[in-house]
C-alpha cells in the first residue's frame, strides 16, 4: 500500500460522494456516482485487493452506472434537493 496515492484517492472519493448527493440534476448525480465507483476501484487496487478491484470496475462502475442512467432516462431528471 502506497500511502500517498491512498490518501489522494480517499480525498477524491469524499469529494465525489458529496458531489453526487449535492448536484441538482439526476443525470449528473449518476455520472458522479460512476466516477465515485471507479475511484473506489483504484483504491482497492492500491490496497492490493485486485479481485475486488476488477469486480468493482465491471459491476460497480459499469453496470450500476448503466442502471442509473436507464432509470433516470425512464423517469425524470429534475430533483428539488
Amino acid at each position: 500500500m502506497i500511502w500517498q496515492i491512498d490518501l489522494a484517492v480517499l480525498i477524491l472519493v469524499l469529494i465525489c460522494a458529496v458531489g453526487a448527493l449535492a448536484v441538482k440534476d439526476l443525470m449528473g448525480a449518476a455520472i458522479l456516482f460512476g466516477a465515485y465507483s471507479f475511484l473506489m476501484c483504484i483504491l482497492w487496487a492500491v490496497m492490493g485487493a485486485v479481485d475486488v478491484a476488477f469486480t468493482e470496475a465491471s459491476v460497480g462502475a459499469g453496470v450500476s452506472t448503466v442502471f442509473f442512467v436507464a432509470a433516470v432516462f425512464r423517469t425524470s431528471r429534475r430533483s428539488k434537493d
Partner: peptide, 21 residues
Amino acid sequence: AKNNLVKKIVGMNIFQTAIIL
C-alpha cells in the same frame, strides 16, 4: 434526509461501499 428517491439510492450505495472499504 434527502427528498428525492434516486438520491436515497445513491446514499444507500455509498453506505455499502463504505462498509466494503
